[in-house]
Design a binder for these strands. Sequence first.
DNA 1: AAATAACATCGTAATATTGCAATATATAGT
DNA 2: ACTATATATTGCAATATTACGATGTTATTT
Lengths: 107, 107
Amino acid sequence: MGITKTQIFTDKQNDLAQFFKVLGHPARVAILQYISSQNACVCSDLVDEIGLAQATISQHLKELKSINLLKGEIDGKSMCYCINVERWSEIQEQLNAFFNNAKLNCC
Amino acid sequence: MGITKTQIFTDKQNDLAQFFKVLGHPARVAILQYISSQNACVCSDLVDEIGLAQATISQHLKELKSINLLKGEIDGKSMCYCINVERWSEIQEQLNAFFNNAKLNCC
DNA sequence: AAATAACATCGTAATATTGCAATATATAGT
DNA sequence: ACTATATATTGCAATATTACGATGTTATTT
């Protein structure tokens, strides 16, 4: 087995979980923190900054792009990866909705 | 090699990622949603509600407990799993800090 | 004390993730 | 065209996760 049974959950549950999953790696947290602390960012900076191989960083960036948290623009011969502000806010709202939805009067 | 290099990240980054990781499964999202929609909860309800085997639900509950999001109290011969309100709020704040920390004036 | 009920844990098979070397691709400068 | 630089992709080995049947544990009921 070992395969997640996505079909028994709602799309919302799967989407939310997918988002959490992508953020569930310290390298990806670190990448987001670093990118958001700069005004722009190129991947070679990240390789130096994070301390993982270039192939590995590139893979993590791909996953962050897969949920639209980053947008990458070609800037000469390097890439400029930036936070996708709209998506970022949208997700923050979704998370707050998730948290606030919890009725807290139990036990 | 398949092992996450936690040692190259800060404790905060690892903690945040660990939290995201635990929530990064639709079954655990569904469990939290269901528990928070009730005032109390026993595991057998969850098995019916979610549609995974009892052993699997039990495992997911264990992971949610590992980040202190749930507290379980023994209630006769069954368990009452509840949201840990303090921890829940604490994490929500941490996430908002993470999101708000992003400077959004890039590109 | 035996049977039942409600979880928890163990063991294991299937699948996913992580990390990197090697290689591919694309652009800039010479 | 050639070389250097920057990033992406591929392939693979090591490890982690998911799911569940079987079994263990603990408390209630009879």
